[in-house]
Design a protein around this nucleic acid. Sequence first.
DNA 1: GTCTATATAAGGATAGAC
DNA 2: GTCTATCCTTATATAGAC
Lengths: 203, 203
Amino acid sequence: MQFSTKERILGAAEMLFAQHGFAGASLRQVTSAAKVNLAAVNYHFGSKENLINEVFRRRLDELNARRLSTLRAAQTEANPRLEDILAAFIKPALALSLDRNGGGAFVRVLARAYAEHNESLRKFLSDNYGHVLKEFAAAFAALLPTLDKQELYWRLDIVSGALTYAMADFGVIKRRGAVSEQAHCELAAEHLIKFASAGLRER
Amino acid sequence: MQFSTKERILGAAEMLFAQHGFAGASLRQVTSAAKVNLAAVNYHFGSKENLINEVFRRRLDELNARRLSTLRAAQTEANPRLEDILAAFIKPALALSLDRNGGGAFVRVLARAYAEHNESLRKFLSDNYGHVLKEFAAAFAALLPTLDKQELYWRLDIVSGALTYAMADFGVIKRRGAVSEQAHCELAAEHLIKFASAGLRER
DNA sequence: GTCTATATAAGGATAGAC
DNA sequence: GTCTATCCTTATATAGAC
């Protein structure tokens, strides 16, 4: 087998959580899709709840590492543009949906997690990845020195909302038959960056 | 009793769907919260699935009627501004969260519904309320005659995303202690309208 | 580490008395 | 229209053989 039992469970869980939600996807469905025994979940993860946590950790570590490295690369430029900072925030997130082995499913899991409004999950995300947001906020503030801090936070919140929505492909934009997943993703990133830079610069 | 059994079930279901999701909230929880008998759900609604549909219909009819009447009022003005059309789209939606008797819960149910990616629900929303979006798109197109149609759809999609996110109060914006729910909502609407009008006008 | 078998609980739905 | 009682299915979790 190419993938271990543990990895197959994580992959199947991600897919089924995206499809049916955390409560809606049963461990029976998961283990059946992963082609492992029902009891394997409790052996490897202890409980369904912990399995959910591990599904998140598997992707978010890498996503935020990419965001930060791209951000820092942009900041070493002589004259970083607002669009570059936005790209560092947006592109790795949208690119995640192109990852082979279920990245597309994961972004929908993420959207569900937001909708869940789950306090313990918010805490998990804030504790583990809050510093990333802080670093981006500082980078935007440096490029928009006349913008009030509170005003900046409002606008970054709007950008995050539009990004979350775009990641999960909620929208009504219909892909033309010939447009590949990758091309759609790049188009979405371009439009978001353009729209957001105008909104952020507005005075 | 002030509310009928049917209304109490709808209210309790809305609250619990917001809290635990459609799969996560059981009919036993719903009927217990509504202080009605378990069998009452099947008597009044036939099934859990149909109960979910009725929870949506109860709010969306009024929301979209308000959006359309505000839009049409704005359009009778001599020189309607882009901001007015945006306000007609955004303000009734955010105001919904202020409705007494569970409007706040409903917007979270709506966010969950988006995250569900449920095809039959998308069809329901599209069939019943798609004409509203069309009318708004036409109004925006009239005010932005140089903007390519496809480009306009992309941007409206971004606005919808940010609005959905704001409605569900996903964001990281902390309300200062003294800021009321209503004031927060009005601030959110103002920021969204300002940000979105800049993004839409961008060339 | 993986299996079968099962304990135990909770779910949606319904039948039938009142 | 509302109740109790119950059917049937599905769920999570675990025990114990291999």
